[in-house]
């Protein structure tokens, strides 16, 4: 099954890293195929940043996302630029504190940045919370693969913080679990 996942937010939120981690989880730890691409402008911080991952059981030929079925949107500008046109059958996770609009597709509201600040004291890990929620809500990669990919991708010394963020993401997506 081919998944096309699009991440968008503002520069500095770790939008590209999120896609890299998800792709790594699929390709290296779930042993499937993944291609990660991105769109970026001249801004290093701010602006609308977007990155995408395709995950498939077969080799991926055309490497660009055609019609994303999964969205992770972390800013209002990102929503307007890259989320608004989501098809009705798509699933979108939004950082509910940062995105004011709501899509017409299935929408899962995750207050990632707020929870990152209040529960973990570091808003920098909001993207990892979103990744945790994405995986818990959709199963796009396995939870074990996500954990391994996070550990392989984050700076040394921040592993525990990031794993906490991931687990918080799991819990926020599936509150009853």
């Amino acid at each position: 099954m081919r998944h096309e996942v699009r991440f968008s937010g503002f520069g500095g939120q770790g939008i590209i890293l999120s896609a890299v981690i998800l792709g790594r989880a699929a390709a290296l730890y779930d042993n499937r195929y993944a291609v990660q691409t991105q769109v970026y402008g001249p801004e290093a911080r701010g602006g609308a940043s977007m990155s995408q991952v395709i995950i498939d059981d077969e080799p991926i030929l055309f490497p660009k996302v055609k019609k994303p079925n999964l969205f992770v949107i972390m800013s209002q500008e990102g929503f307007e630029k890259y989320g608004k046109t989501a098809s009705p059958d798509a699933t979108m996770l939004i950082d509910s504190g940062l995105v004011h609009d709501r899509p017409e597709c299935i929408c899962i509201e995750i207050p990632a940045t707020r929870e990152a600040k209040t529960q973990l004291g570091r808003d920098i890990v909001a993207n990892i919370i979103m990744l945790g929620s994405l995986v818990a809500a959709t199963g796009v990669v396995s939870a074990q693969a996500l954990e391994q990919a996070i550990l392989a991708s984050v700076p040394k010394g921040t592993e525990e913080l990031n794993l906490k963020a991931m687990r918080l993401g799991f819990a926020l997506a599936v509150p009853e679990a």
Binding site: G23, A34, T37, Q38, I60, P63, K64
Partner: peptide, 9 residues
Amino acid sequence: EVIGHMRER
């Protein structure tokens, strides 16, 4: 740029 910035296994 597509190939240069693309990530694959």
